[in-house]
Simulated assay, not measured.
Amino acid sequence: MKTCPSPTCQPRQNLLLADLPEADLAGWAADLQPVKLSLGQVLCESGSTAAYVYFPTTAIVSLLYLTQDGESTEIAVVGRDGVVGISVFMGGNGTPSRSVVQSAGEALRLPAHRVKQEITQAGAIQAMLLGYTQSLMAQMAQTAACNRYHSIDQLLCRRLLMGLDRLPSEALMMTQELLANLLGVRREGVTAAALRLSQAGLISYSRGRIAVLDRASLEQRVANPAQPAKQRGGAALMSQQA
């Protein structure tokens, strides 16, 4: 992992850190280390104890649930809106998910012991971390419901929108194979869904780059699917994997 001493990697780029009072953020300043995260990099394995927590600034990290047969599906997405490594301050000895960098970029990492020190103080930092944990749990619950009831078209639209919410551009560097793994469905299903979105003028894609051309229509398709959920054929529902 590379450090990034560049002045472009600043704590206030992460929305959680940006909300902290200046005094609280200053207390972490000496221990926050800017790092560059590469595509596919594993920040923490399922069942392991995290040595650091990460506050992404431009990177996006996927939290993956792993099955006993080696399959995986995405249960949450963390970008500049959050922090990776909530098990550090929730009292667990290990994390239930694998944290993998899904979009390369920068983050600030903090040693786990510093987070544990702050969480016992019942101050602004504790309130921030617990508040984010609640929102992350809500995201996981919504993901489980969507994986159960939504069509592949809806799942793809939702996942593209979640990526856009965490990036400054309207383009995502994601292959169809990666999307299939994240959604827990067959690649053929993602290919067909992407083709429908492309033909409708909502997206364009080539060589692993997906450009969103009509965000409003993507949002509409999440609520009004182009195909019913019963036609998902081959989707690996997260509720069944669990």
Rank of each mutant, 00 (worst) to 15 (best):
D24Q: 12
P111H: 07
M1T: 02
P7C: 01
R159M: 11
C9R: 03
A226D: 12
V78Y: 01
A192Q: 13
R98G: 04
V78A: 03
L63I: 14
S46N: 12
M238K: 10
V222M: 09
P96T: 12
R209Y: 03
G27H: 05
E177M: 10
K2T: 00
S62D: 12
L202A: 07
S135H: 05
S239R: 15
L213R: 10
P11L: 00
S38M: 15
Q227V: 15
L15P: 00
L17E: 01
I75V: 15
A141C: 05
T49Q: 09
E71A: 10
N147E: 03
D153V: 02
P34K: 06
Q199T: 12
A26I: 00
P11M: 03
K230H: 09
T58E: 03
L32H: 06
A192D: 14
I86M: 13
A107P: 06
P225L: 10
S217N: 02
Q227A: 14
G79N: 04
V83P: 02
L20G: 01
I125P: 00
L182G: 01
G189A: 12
S217M: 12
S135P: 00
L15Y: 03
R166N: 09
P111C: 10
Y149K: 01
G79F: 06
N93M: 08
S62A: 15
Q121C: 14
C146W: 06
K36S: 09
A144V: 09
Q142A: 11
G79V: 06
G27V: 03
A76G: 08
G184T: 13
Q126Y: 04
H150D: 05
N181R: 15
F55L: 06
L195R: 13
S6V: 00
N181A: 14
S6E: 02
L130I: 07
L202W: 04
S97L: 14
R196H: 06
L213I: 09
R166D: 06
R12F: 02
A59C: 11
L110V: 10
A144P: 00
T49D: 06
I152H: 01
D19M: 07
S87N: 13
A59S: 13
R109C: 13
T73A: 15
G131R: 03
V101L: 08
A124C: 01
I119G: 06
R221L: 06
Q121D: 06
L179P: 01
S6M: 00
G94Y: 11
D214I: 00
L32M: 11
V61M: 10
Y52G: 00
R166K: 13
V88S: 04
G91L: 07
L183T: 05
S46L: 13
Y149D: 05
E22T: 11
A23C: 04
P21S: 04
A104Q: 05
S48M: 15
G27W: 03
E219M: 11
V84H: 05
D19F: 07
Q126T: 12
A51D: 09
T73Y: 04
A236T: 05
L218E: 02
A107G: 05
D214A: 11
A211D: 09
G40F: 14
I86T: 11
Q13H: 04
A138K: 12
V77I: 15
S72W: 08
I125S: 01
V190L: 12
S87K: 03
T67L: 10
A138M: 13
S72T: 14
S87C: 15
D81T: 11
G105K: 07
T49C: 09
L202G: 00
S99G: 10
